[in-house]
């Protein structure tokens, strides 16, 4: 599967941009946290697209963001 580029993303309408990013991010996140992959992906998709593209290219930044999101999700669930 060829990498998702900024120009590919720019060519798509906003709704599809998030879907494209989600479809790429989800399998990567699922490897880290299979149980909450859907929730974590949904949280990260609210981030700016340029940062999401960067995360797709840089596993370290993706990993850091995912761990951050897991902590936020756990705090949110503890509050409920």
């Amino acid at each position: 599967q060829e990498p998702l580029t900024a120009s590919m993303l720019a060519a798509a309408p906003l709704k599809e941009q998030k879907q494209l990013l989600g479809e790429r991010l989800y399998p990567l996140i699922q490897m880290l946290h299979p149980v909450v992959a859907g929730k974590i992906t949904g949280m990260l998709l609210e981030i700016d697209n340029s940062e999401l593209l960067h995360m797709l290219e840089s596993p370290e930044s993706l990993h850091a963001k995912v761990e951050e999101a897991v902590a936020v999700l756990q705090a949110h669930q503890a509050k409920e």
Partner: peptide
Amino acid sequence: SNGTNVNWPPEFCPGVPWKGLQNIDP
């Protein structure tokens, strides 16, 4: 409200249109 929105986060499922778009539509 105390902000505990049970619909948050808008979960992503592959192949299913993501529901979180209404939160970010400009």
